[in-house]
Amino acid sequence: MPWSREDMAARAAKEMEDGFYVNLGIGIPTLVANYIAPDMKVVLQSENGMLGMGPFPFPGEEDPDLINAGKQTITALATTSYFSSADSFAMIRGGHINLSVLGAMEVSENGDLANWMVPGKMVKGMGGAMDLVAGVRRVVVIMEHTAKDGTSKFRPKCELPLTGANVVDMLITDLAVFTRESRAGQFKLIELAPGVTSADVRQKTTAAYQQ
């Protein structure tokens, strides 16, 4: 049985290490926060200018001046700091963030990522995604393995305009997990969702990867 959104988020949470500073993208990556081991210290960065992001507020305790990069109301922690967008992206581009988890539309076998525009459709913008993939030390991507018509989203080459070239270190899909040791290396299949075989994955994937 393929992994659910929650399963994929939980798998991504296993990539956290104690003391990590982490930026989570919008969508499934936001769910990752729910699966961080309680005994582990992980500091969440929100690129609109906050380190130490807390949970959503209780009803009535929301503050219009306190939102995350997805524009949702959130809360602060005892150790939170606030800063400008310029400082926030200095952290990101300067390599101070250990890990980023992002969603994707396509990933290529050499680690290119496409997640911001579909030509011919209204483009909302890349937001901070291009800066995150260019600056964060390790990039983990979560996406459905195939499009609705069954075509592989892990491909030899991205068809869609790129967010970054050669930037993905780990890919978690609803079927499997692929990772690579370095950005010069090839992705390797390291885990399968329950009941999914490596032959299933091979058949649904057009990208080249090590078994």
């Binding site: 310029a86 992206f89 581009r93 937001g127 901070g128 291009m130 600056g135 790129l162 970054g164 070239a165």
Partner: peptide, 28 residues
């Protein structure tokens, strides 16, 4: 890109005419 925008504004205000960044390399 959001960080490029923030840095372009920061640089403009600090009298830095231009800068090199990895953000956006290999993209549109």
């Amino acid at each position: 890109p959001q960080g490029t925008l923030a840095e372009r504004i920061r640089a403009g205000g600090a009298g830095i005419h231009a800068f090199f960044t990895r953000t956006g390399a290999g993209t549109l």
